[in-house]
Amino acid sequence: MTAAPTIDPFRTFASSAVPIDIANCDTDQIIPARFLRKGSDDPDYARFLLHDLRFNTDGSETNFVFNEPAYRGAGILVADKNWGCGSSRENAVTALVANGIRAVIAPSVADIHYSNCIQNGVLPVRLSDEECATLRAQLRDGPGAEIAIDLETQTLTGPDQTRYTFEIDPFDKHRLLNGLDDISLTLEHDTTITEFAASYAARHSWAG
């Protein structure tokens, strides 16, 4: 049995990008906790992304970079160190997806947020500190500039046509390229799991 794609495969992606100059941007910033019980079908979901940075308490827009017209509709974020730290809330990625964001480029991405991205067809790209700073500066200087990503070759082309290469776990790459969800992949090992559970129970009878 071969698993069928259940999320949008990620092969190549090109889009305008928005620079987010916040180091350690935690998932409480990416989506405030008060929205965590909302369903992903909520028509307002796109607004929840970075909500308290984008909106004043009266609902009017702040001057946060995300609100600038040239960056609207950006499908890529270029962030700073330790993007997505803190809470494991996958809603942070749901909010990215609700805004059509398919890739986050950052010097580092927190562990749980990283896997949440992979699970939802969002590509986290880790480039060096300097490379991310360069990209953010280029995006600030040329709002609306595009970045192109090719996952197969693990390359990224910046606004000035500089090419960068990035590393990604082969398994994560395979899942993104094929839009596979883990459950279908795992159930290919169904019999092995059942056998393991039995032998584990025999070895650890107290843990059952």
Partner: peptide, 14 residues
Amino acid sequence: GIGSTEVQHVLATQ
């Protein structure tokens, strides 16, 4: 600590 897709995965597959 895991995300919500992983929660579904553990529910379905242990």
